[in-house]
Every structure is written in structure tokens, then in C-alpha cells.
């Protein structure tokens, strides 16, 4: 954990709380996947969720944009407030919520459309552009934001599925960024990528922190240490420890966290 970048980046002292989660529980049918999680997620911060497989970290992530709604057997209890508003309240349309809380998935999943149409999909649906010129601008900005513009600017009409894995994932990030979300959720975004593409995406995540609150689920502790300022460790559905990344990796308070980061459980 001697990554030089760690020291440079502390948590913004005055970062606002974006998500306030209290007593969050998730059941899949009879099985409880998440037990009584309390956590605050900060704005303009990269928060990493780490923990062994099946520990509930992805489940918790999918609570934050109500993607668990698409799973018939899932039941979510507790309160999750996005800027003070309960996102599970009946007055909140999950469709609108997901425009504010974007998501990038484990496996790159570009639509079988052109690169341009992939990025323009969200803005079109949400009526963010009044004309073609504005849409062009949004697409370009999103692709630049995802560090993909230079590689694809001459072939925006080609299909998105024809790109390499790393490019596809950055296209998916561009697609999510294009709808101007406030929070970006990433579910193991690098697990299907090679080291070079992983490095590119990690660099991108660091840039995204300027404008968004980023939450990333990762299996790689090195990755969590490299990209995040805050880290949450989940184990068997419990949020065991949550704090500044540096503190979690150098001075864990809970014996389970220590065992996990030193490779004894997992």
C-alpha cells in the first residue's frame, strides 16, 4: 500500500453528504443479503466498497439507484436519503432517480448501436438537447470526459460493440456521464479489463471526482487504495468498517478488516 498518490489526496474537509443511509436491509426472498447498514456517502469523493464475494457490497450499491427494483424477489428496508430526500418514497420515480444516479456495470454493455447513439441515448430520452448541435456537444463532452474522444472521434458512426473491452467500458462511462448524473455508481468496472485498460479507467475515475460523487465496488484492494478516498469494508452482509481509505489500509480498527486486507479472509 505504498502508492504515492494516497498521501496526496485526503478527503475534502468540507465535502457535503450526498447519500445518507440508515438501517438499510436487503432480503432476496428469505435470504438476508444486507444487515442494518448505516453510511454517509460524500459528494466529490471516490468511495470504494470492498469485501469478499457475496458480502453485500454490490447489493448495497444497487440500492442507491434502485436497480434492485428490477429483481422481483428483492426487498429493501431502511432509509436512503439523496440530499435529504428518501429515494424509496412513493413520490420518487425510480426512472428519474436513475438519471441522477448513473451506473456502470461489471461487464461493458454498450448497446448494439453506433458509438454516437450509445452516448446520445440518455440525453435524447431526457430531452437534454434542443437540437442536433447541442446533442453533438453533449456527446463530445461526455466522450472527452471518458477519455475516449480522441480514439473514436473519426468513427462515431461505427457500432459500439466493435470497440475493444477497455474502450467499451469507457464508452459506458461516457454514456452514464452524458445524462449529467450527480452520482456515478461503478460495479467492479475493471474486472473484465486488462491492466492497461484498467489503468486508463482508474485515471478516469480520479478525474470524475472533480464533478461527481463516485462509488466503486471492487475486488482489488490495490484498486481501492489507488482510486478512493473513503473505503467501506463489507463482510457477510454487515458494514464492518467505514472510514478514510488511508486509515482503513494502514490502521484498521476491526480485526475482520485487518484479516481481509492482509489476505486472511476472503
Amino acid at each position: 500500500m505504498d502508492d504515492v498518490r494516497l498521501a496526496e489526496r485526503g478527503v475534502d474537509a468540507d465535502a457535503k453528504v450526498k447519500f445518507e443511509c440508515r438501517g438499510v436491509q436487503v432480503h432476496y426472498g428469505e435470504k438476508q443479503a444486507l444487515k442494518d447498514v448505516d453510511a454517509d456517502i460524500l459528494d466529490r469523493t471516490v468511495t470504494a466498497f470492498i469485501g469478499p464475494s457475496g458480502c453485500g457490497k454490490s447489493t448495497f450499491l444497487r440500492c442507491l439507484n434502485r436497480m434492485n427494483d428490477t429483481v422481483a424477489s428483492a426487498r429493501v428496508d431502511g432509509r436512503i436519503l439523496l440530499e435529504g430526500e428518501d429515494i424509496y418514497d412513493a413520490r420518487v420515480d425510480p426512472v428519474q432517480l436513475r438519471a441522477r444516479v448513473g451506473m456502470v456495470f461489471q461487464k461493458p454493455n454498450p448497446f448494439p448501436k453506433s458509438i454516437y447513439d450509445n452516448v446520445a441515448y440518455g440525453p435524447k430520452i431526457h430531452g437534454m438537447a434542443r437540437n442536433k448541435a447541442e446533442l453533438d456537444e453533449i456527446v463530445e463532452r461526455a466522450l472527452r470526459g471518458a477519455a475516449l474522444w480522441n480514439e473514436v472521434k473519426d468513427r462515431l458512426g461505427e457500432t459500439g460493440t466493435g470497440l475493444s473491452g477497455g474502450q467499451q467500458q469507457r464508452l459506458c462511462i461516457a454514456r452514464a456521464v452524458a445524462t449529467a448524473p450527480e452520482v456515478l455508481l461503478m460495479d467492479e468496472p475493471c474486472s473484465a479489463l486488462d491492466p492497461i485498460a484498467t489503468a486508463q479507467v482508474e485515471e478516469l475515475i480520479d478525474d470524475l471526482r472533480e464533478s461527481y460523487s463516485v462509488v466503486i465496488v471492487t475486488h482489488s484492494m490495490q484498486q481501492a487504495a489507488r482510486v478512493s478516498q473513503r473505503t467501506a469494508f463489507f463482510h457477510l452482509g454487515n458494514l464492518v468498517e467505514y472510514g478514510d481509505t488511508e486509515q482503513i489500509f494502514t490502521n484498521p480498527q476491526d480485526p475482520r478488516t485487518e484479516s481481509y486486507i492482509s489476505g486472511k479472509i476472503g
Binding site: 428490477t70 426512472v95 438519471a99 454493455n109 448497446f111 431526457h126 452514464a176 445524462t179
Partner: peptide
């Protein structure tokens, strides 16, 4: 994953199906 990708961008179920 294709449907999830579309839903996660804030499109409705019917938009996802159509588009």
C-alpha cells in the same frame, strides 16, 4: 445487461424495449 444498462440511464421499461 443490455436492459440494465438502459434502465440505469433512467429510461423507462417501455423505452428500453422500444429502443
Amino acid at each position: 445487461t443490455m436492459r440494465d444498462g438502459s434502465l440505469a440511464l433512467g429510461s423507462t421499461h417501455s423505452e428500453t424495449i422500444r429502443q
